[in-house]
Simulated scan of single mutants.
Amino acid sequence: LWCTYHTKSLVEKACTNTLKALNLDYLDLYLIHWPMGFKPGDKDLPLDCNGMVIPSSTDFLDTWEAMEDLVISGMVKYIGVSNFNHKQLERLLNKPGLRFKPVTNQIECHPYLTQKNLIDFCRKHDVSVTAYRPLGGSSEGVDLMDNPVIQEIAKKHGKSPAQILILFQIQRNVIVIPKSVTPSRIRENFEVFDFELTEEDMEELLNLNKSEHHKDYPFHIEY
């Protein structure tokens, strides 16, 4: 659910548009993409004169009620959230009259942003975690996959840095969704079930944490 459709009356329309675009009768999973809404209209990213997003006055608790209606109507099977911090997720879970809790929270997650506290919170409340951008990005001009610690672990196991980063999430019991359009890399992304990272490997990867996000957004977000 994109941010310009957070108004309760627009949620069903947004889902209908998605179903038509995908030529489907229902979705297995539908997520609120961000906890904040943007000004509704023709522009996906409505910006003010300073280049910042124009927010809407919507509350994600109201948006969630419309998401729940999608489950009841059969348009979607499960609903979840994305980019919610623990305070926002806790507020949603404590919502009076909650009919369906989020099945997952999709968040940016990689060794430079391990998200341990948020993952622990989600696990405590039986909300699965989905890691997007698991291969990270650059930090101070150095790409995550070029990090010497990750390179050394990859060399030890005879695997690629990308495979190390994917298995890192799997062994944390985190759903991982790497993205690629290259057939050879897509195949490589699947070839992570014939080896195991040691406790020492996992500790080294966790110790790389910088609580660092790899994308600048034209709006303020609190983590």
Rank of each mutant, 00 (worst) to 15 (best):
L19A: 07
F168P: 03
E152F: 02
N17T: 04
P96T: 09
M202W: 06
D126E: 09
P111Y: 07
R123H: 15
C109G: 09
V127R: 15
L24R: 13
C3I: 02
H125C: 10
C49E: 14
P148C: 06
N50Q: 14
E90K: 11
H220N: 13
K116M: 14
N17F: 15
P96D: 12
T104V: 04
S73T: 03
G97L: 04
L70K: 07
K156G: 04
K179A: 04
G158T: 00
W34T: 05
K215N: 15
L206R: 12
G80Q: 00
E200L: 04
L113H: 04
F121Q: 01
M75F: 13
M75G: 07
H86S: 15
P218Y: 10
K8T: 06
N117L: 05
V71C: 05
P183K: 04
K210R: 12
L29M: 09
F100K: 07
A21D: 06
R99Y: 06
P40D: 12
V129W: 10
I170G: 08
L61Y: 12
I166D: 09
K116S: 12
N85M: 08
P183G: 07
P134F: 00
Y217W: 14
H220Y: 12
H157Y: 07
I153K: 09
D59N: 09
Q163C: 02
R187F: 06
H220C: 13
V174Y: 09
G80W: 15
